[in-house]
C-alpha cells in the first residue's frame, strides 16, 4: 500500500486501575475510506472513542495524524488536530432550530454582536445538501427532524468545523431500519467526497460490510482481527461476536427494505 494513513493508532492501551480496558490496539484509517470498528458490548469501543476524542488520556501507545505523532488531553485538543466525533446522543438541542444547533458554541455574528441568522441558515442548508439532506427551513426546531436527519446534521457540523477524521459512534444503533439506511447512505456520501477518513464504530457487521473499506474487530480490549475486504473472512469473525443467529435473520430483513 503506497498511500499514507490519515490517522494511525499504534499499540494504544488504556487502564482503569487494574482493569485493562484497551491493550495494544492498532489500526489505521485512510482518506476517502471507511474503517469499520466492530465489537460487541463491553469490547472497549466506548473507551476507544473517548480516548481518540480526548475525553480520556491514553496510557500507552501513539496516535499519528498524517505521519506526525499528536498529543492532546481534551476534546478541544482532539478537535484542534482534526478529530471530529459524532456521539451516539449527537450533542443536539431538540428545542433549538437546525441552524442554531449547527453553529452552537461557534455562532456567527455580525460586528454588532447580532447573530447572522441569514448566513447561518445558508451555510447549514448548503452543508446538509452536500451530504444529501435538503433542509427546507433551517429555522425549524430539530425536534421535527427524523433521527437519521439529526445524525446527518451532527456529521455535517463536524465536517464543516474542520474534521479530517470523523469518528462515528454507533450512528445506526438507535434508529429504525429505514433511518439506518439513510445514515448509511450519508456515510457513503461523506466517504465519496474523498476528503475525510472515517471511523465507523458499530456492533452491526452488516452495516459495516455495506460501507466499510477496512475492518477491525475489537474483543475484550484487543483487536482480534483486521484487514480490508480482500484479506478478511467476515463470516469467520462474525462468529466471534455475539448473536450470529440474529444477525443472519437481520440480513434477510435488511436485504429487502420496505
Amino acid at each position: 500500500m503506497d498511500k499514507k494513513p490519515t490517522i494511525e493508532i499504534r499499540n494504544l492501551s488504556k487502564f482503569f486501575g487494574n482493569i485493562i480496558a484497551l491493550k495494544d490496539v492498532s489500526f489505521e484509517v485512510y482518506k476517502g475510506e471507511v474503517t469499520a470498528l466492530l465489537g460487541d458490548n463491553g469490547a472497549g469501543k466506548s473507551t476507544l472513542i473517548k480516548t481518540l476524542s480526548g475525553v480520556y488520556r491514553r496510557d500507552e501507545g501513539e496516535i499519528l495524524i498524517d505521519g506526525q505523532v499528536v498529543n492532546f488531553s481534551s476534546p478541544r485538543g482532539a478537535a484542534a488536530v482534526g478529530i471530529g466525533t459524532v456521539y451516539q446522543d449527537l450533542a443536539l438541542q431538540p428545542l433549538m432550530s437546525v441552524s442554531r444547533n449547527f453553529f452552537l458554541g461557534r455562532e456567527l455574528a455580525k460586528w454588532t454582536g447580532v447573530l447572522d441568522f441569514k448566513q447561518m441558515d445558508q451555510i447549514t442548508r448548503d452543508e446538509m445538501a452536500k451530504i444529501g439532506i435538503d433542509v427546507a427551513d433551517p429555522s425549524q426546531p430539530i425536534g421535527t427532524m427524523s433521527g437519521g436527519q439529526r445524525q446527518t446534521l451532527a456529521i455535517a457540523r463536524a465536517i464543516y468545523f474542520g474534521a479530517k477524521i470523523l469518528i462515528l459512534d454507533e450512528p445506526t444503533s438507535a434508529l429504525g431500519q429505514k433511518q439506518q439506511l439513510e445514515v448509511l447512505r450519508t456515510i457513503k456520501r461523506v466517504r465519496d467526497l474523498g476528503e475525510l477518513a472515517i471511523v465507523f464504530i458499530t456492533h452491526n457487521d452488516l452495516h459495516a460490510k455495506l460501507v466499510g473499506d477496512r475492518f477491525a474487530f475489537l474483543n475484550r480490549g484487543k483487536i482480534i482481527a483486521s484487514g480490508d475486504r480482500t484479506t478478511i473472512d467476515m463470516d469467520n469473525v462474525r462468529a466471534l461476536m455475539a448473536g450470529g443467529a440474529e444477525l443472519a435473520n437481520l440480513e434477510r430483513e435488511f436485504a429487502d427494505p420496505s
Binding site: 450533542a91 443536539l92 438541542q93 433549538m96 452552537l104 447580532v114 447573530l115
Partner: peptide, 24 residues
C-alpha cells in the same frame, strides 16, 4: 434571541452535556 450568549442560555438549559460537548 439575537446573540451568542442567548444561544448558550437555551443550550445550557436544554441539554447541558451536549452544550458542553460543542464548547458552550
Amino acid at each position: 434571541n439575537f446573540t451568542r450568549i442567548g444561544n448558550w442560555i437555551f443550550a445550557a438549559g436544554g441539554d447541558p452535556v451536549a452544550a458542553r460537548a460543542v464548547g458552550v
